[in-house]
């Protein structure tokens, strides 16, 4: 896992909204869609969290400080921050899915008085896989936000927290389901189960928002790769209201 911070030296791109992504190019290797994971209050610092899984992300992760890379963006529809004002906010993140939610958390904490209860429920594979661990610990010390982290499994010696799936944290979280906005990001399976658990808890589908991931080449709806039924993930998302995609999520290999 790598954090890549970019200082733009070309024409400044528009300030990114929480949940948007950039297309990053490692010259001579290729381009990949990478979500912005930094503080939206600092638009001059473009922070990306990268998992080195393919040739492009490997090449990006190997860049030395000062090296040049290509950037297009920001793209896509982000988290509905305005809609969350005045309501409780439940954030459910899984694995690397915490990265695109981090700008939303920064925004919530920066404008804390605008929102009701704020719950951040995060599931990771193991204690070693927890993203932004120090930051989560510092947020945990705040009294105006609940941060709960669970892992799928842990060696007894290095974890004293929750072990189990992230949905088990929901039952312990304090929020008013009728007046809650939920922001969910993680593997698609995890998001389906989270959306179902939120629904069971009384949160309406229209108040649940998911961030989807698909192969993307152009980020502007022209290359066709990220189609998910009638929508282009890059252009119409990546953040969708659950009721807009719930029917599509039922189909395998769509």
């Amino acid at each position: 896992m790598w954090t890549l911070e970019i200082e733009p030296d070309g024409p400044a791109s528009a300030a990114a909204a929480p949940g948007q992504f950039n297309m990053l190019t490692a010259f001579g290797v290729g381009e990949a869609a990478i979500s912005l994971s930094g503080d939206p209050a600092e638009p001059g610092r473009l922070v990306h969290t990268i998992r080195a899984v393919g040739p492009v992300s490997h090449a990006l992760a190997q860049l030395r400080p000062g090296a040049a890379l290509g950037l297009r963006g920001p793209f896509g529809a982000g988290w509905p921050m305005a809609e969350a004002a005045g309501r409780d906010v439940v954030i459910m993140a899984g694995g690397l899915g915490l990265a695109p939610l981090r700008p939303a958390i920064y925004r919530l904490l920066a404008e804390r008085a605008r929102y009701g209860q704020v719950q951040v429920l995060y599931g990771a594979r193991s204690p070693a896989d927890i993203l932004f661990r120090r930051e989560l610990e510092s947020w945990r010390r705040r009294l105006d936000v609940e941060i709960e982290v669970t892992v799928d499994h842990a060696a007894v010696s290095d974890w004293r927290g929750h072990v189990g799936v992230v949905t088990t944290l929901l039952g312990r979280a304090a929020f008013d389901p009728a007046n809650t906005v939920a922001l969910v990001c993680g593997p698609e399976i995890m998001m389906r189960f989270c959306a179902a658990a939120l629904g069971d808890a009384g949160v309406k589908a229209e108040a649940i928002h998911l961030s989807m991931e698909r192969n993307m080449k152009c980020a502007i709806g022209l290359c066709g790769h990220c189609q998910f039924g009638p929508v282009f993930i890059c252009r119409d998302g990546p953040v969708f209201r659950y009721d807009q995609v719930a029917g599509l999520l039922r189909h395998k290999e769509l």
Partner: peptide, 19 residues
């Protein structure tokens, strides 16, 4: 049932490299 569902998720290793 909840234990079984959680076990399914853990077996799938949804947050792992392959997920």
């Amino acid at each position: 049932i909840q234990r079984l569902q959680a076990a399914q998720m853990q077996i799938l290793d949804v947050y792992g490299e392959q997920a």
